[in-house]
Each structure stands twice: as structure tokens, then as C-alpha cells.
């Protein structure tokens, strides 16, 4: 295989708090290829958004990247100075967030917002040229009536239009990687459908890679090529979307998938539930961090190893799960499918 576009190795993000240091993201490694959309799924406090911000080197203080590397085409972003990082941010790796409106300057028109991004990254062309570039970009994300909308203010646009502008802003410098943190969560489903297909199209035509951070497995199934499931600061399962959905190897992934209620057909009589709630970074459980809630552990009568040892994973495998008993999970599932 060719060298991946982005290679993250042993990335750890720590927050210094009153009760000492907590690790929100703990020793995470993964790679992304060109034009690939990789889903990063997790519940609140799983560390998914912090990981997304860490890739941008935008972890808010008092958090910091304490170890690990983020290699973008061989250049380690984690080792860059802040000044160097500023030239990378936006032009080679950019961020799109859930609340598009909050990221925009309310007293600047749509056109100027984007023009400003181009200017601030050292484009010395005339203002008119930069405006044309902004308009072209807005057409590419299919904002309607671009000539009029260029002169409007962010609050005058609908939520779907705002999100399109945010995407245009994230794309205008032609980054290789986009971190999209819940980009469609606040949108209505009919709008979400259009934004998702727009993102997919951008990857296919421009070869841009997307790290798609979300809690919603349904959207992952819709647009991602691969998926990583995060729990308590770690990736617990990783694989192609097809494999992970068909044969989840980690009991947590399995639980998340069964929480994805069917849209059609007969409704379920009762939903499978996980007991308890996701842990907070200040008190990650020992051993496997999922063990206090794990239905598989319970079925196996709480094996000692789950409480004492971190599951070892071979991250070079295309599909892996951080579970001592991952092999047990898979045949069980195959049987269910067969039966």
C-alpha cells in the first residue's frame, strides 16, 4: 500500500485539572488514505471531539497533546510551532463544526468571510479576484443565488445554507483533510441528506479526506468508508463500515448498533440496553474501560482479565477490536444472522 495521507501514532491528549491530569484521548493510532471518509463514532465524553481538535492542534487550554505524532504526508503536525501550524491550518487541514452560525462573524457578509480566509493565508491577488474565488467555491457547494447571497449576513441564511457556507469556507484553500465534527446533527433530515451527498461528492471529485466525527451510526453507514468506534478516550474497534456493521467484534459496538432503531418493518418489542452510563475522563475504569457495562463480560461471568488488563490490539489488521474476547463475539453474531 502507498503511504497514507495522514498517519496518527500514539496520540494522547491530557487536561490538567484540579484532581490531577486526565487523559481525554489515550494513545490513539490510525491512518487515513486519500479521498477516504473515516467515521469517528462515540458518545459524550468519549474523546471523539477532542481527538478531532487535536488533529487541528486546537485543543483548548488547559488541554495539550502530551505525546504522539500526527503525520500529514510525512510532516509531523504535533511537532510544529504555533506559527508554522497557522500556515497548515485551513490550507492543508481544516475544520467544519456543528454550529455553523457560531463560527461566522455576524457583522461580515458571506462573501467577505470567505474572502478574508483567502487573504489571511497570504493570497496577494486583488480583492475582486478573491471575491470571485469565494463565489466559485459557494457555487461548488451549491448555495443558490450566489451573487445575492454573497452580500447577505450569516443570520439571513437558513441552517442548511449556513452549513454550506461553512463547508465552502473549510474547502476554499483546498485542504487535503477535513475534520467534520457533527456537521449535520443540527439539520433537518431532508437537509442532512443533501449535505451528506455534497460531502461525499467533494471527496470523490477533489480527493479530499474527511474525518467524520459523530454520534450517529446511521450517517456513518451512509457516507463513511471506514469507521472507528471510540469509548473512554480510546478506539475500541476499527474496520471498514461494511465489516463493522455486519460483524461488530466489540461488545460496545454491538450495543451501539442495536441502539440504531429500525426505520421500517415491525418495531422491536423491547430494546437491548447497556447498564450505567459512559464514564468520565477523571475516572476511567481499570483494565478494559468498558468492563463495568459489558454484556459479554457479564455473560462470561466477569472474567478477571477484563478488570485487570488492557486488551491488546493488533492495529495493523484491517478490522480489529480491543476486547479480550472479540473472537467470541463474532461467531455468535454469525449464528444470529444464519438463524
Amino acid at each position: 500500500m502507498t503511504e497514507p495521507l495522514l498517519k496518527v501514532t500514539g496520540l494522547t491528549v491530557e487536561f490538567l485539572g484540579r484532581h490531577g491530569t486526565v487523559r481525554a484521548v489515550d494513545d490513539v493510532s490510525f491512518t487515513i488514505g486519500r479521498g477516504e471518509i473515516i467515521g469517528l463514532v462515540g458518545e459524550s465524553a468519549s474523546g471523539k471531539s477532542t481527538l478531532g481538535l487535536a488533529l487541528m492542534r486546537m485543543v483548548p487550554s488547559p488541554g495539550r497533546i502530551s505525546s504522539g505524532s500526527i503525520s500529514l504526508e510525512g510532516q509531523d503536525l504535533a511537532a510544529l510551532s504555533e506559527a508554522e501550524m497557522r500556515t497548515v491550518r485551513g490550507s492543508r487541514i481544516s475544520l467544519i463544526v456543528q454550529d455553523a452560525l457560531a463560527t461566522m462573524n455576524p457583522v461580515t457578509t458571506i462573501g467577505e468571510q470567505i474572502e478574508e480566509v483567502i487573504r489571511d493565508h497570504g493570497d496577494r491577488s486583488s480583492r475582486a479576484e478573491r471575491m470571485t474565488r469565494a463565489a466559485t467555491m459557494l457555487r461548488e457547494v451549491r448555495l443558490p443565488n450566489v451573487d445575492q447571497n454573497l452580500r447577505r449576513f450569516p443570520h439571513e441564511l437558513s441552517g442548511g445554507m449556513q452549513q454550506r457556507v461553512a463547508i465552502a469556507e473549510g474547502l476554499v484553500l483546498g485542504p487535503q483533510v477535513i475534520i467534520a465534527d457533527e456537521p449535520t446533527t443540527a439539520l433537518d433530515v431532508t437537509v442532512q441528506a443533501q449535505i451528506l451527498s455534497l460531502l461525499r461528492e467533494i471527496c470523490d471529485t477533489r480527493g479530499t479526506s474527511i474525518v467524520f466525527v459523530t454520534h450517529d451510526l446511521a450517517t456513518v453507514a451512509e457516507i463513511c468508508d471506514r469507521v472507528m468506534v471510540m469509548y473512554a478516550g480510546r478506539i475500541v474497534e476499527s474496520g471498514t463500515v461494511r465489516e463493522v456493521f455486519r460483524q461488530p467484534a466489540h461488545p460496545y459496538t454491538k450495543a451501539l448498533l442495536s441502539g440504531l432503531l429500525p426505520l421500517a418493518g415491525e418495531p422491536l418489542a423491547e430494546l437491548d440496553t447497556l447498564s450505567g452510563q459512559p464514564p468520565r475522563p477523571e475516572d476511567w475504569p481499570t483494565g478494559c474501560r468498558f468492563h463495568p457495562r459489558c454484556p459479554l463480560g457479564e455473560a462470561l461471568d466477569h472474567p478477571e482479565i477484563c478488570m485487570t488488563d488492557d486488551p491488546h490490539v493488533d492495529e495493523s489488521q484491517p478490522h480489529w477490536a480491543a476486547c479480550h474476547f472479540a473472537e467470541l463475539q463474532q461467531p455468535a453474531l454469525t449464528e444470529e444472522v444464519a438463524g
Binding site: G160, V189, T190, L263
Partner: peptide, 25 residues
């Protein structure tokens, strides 16, 4: 029909085709 077909079906094997979803714009 449009509303239901707009919701991702959650199945990576069958990514939804959406002949009915038109722009809210």
C-alpha cells in the same frame, strides 16, 4: 415518503437512493 427516504437507512450495504428528496431551498 420524502421525509422517510431522507433518513439514512443505517445499512452500509444499501446506501439510500433518494429520488424524492428535493432541496428545502
Amino acid at each position: 415518503r420524502m421525509l422517510i427516504s431522507a433518513a439514512p437507512n443505517g445499512d452500509p450495504e444499501e446506501r439510500s437512493e433518494r429520488p424524492w428528496v428535493s432541496s428545502e431551498l
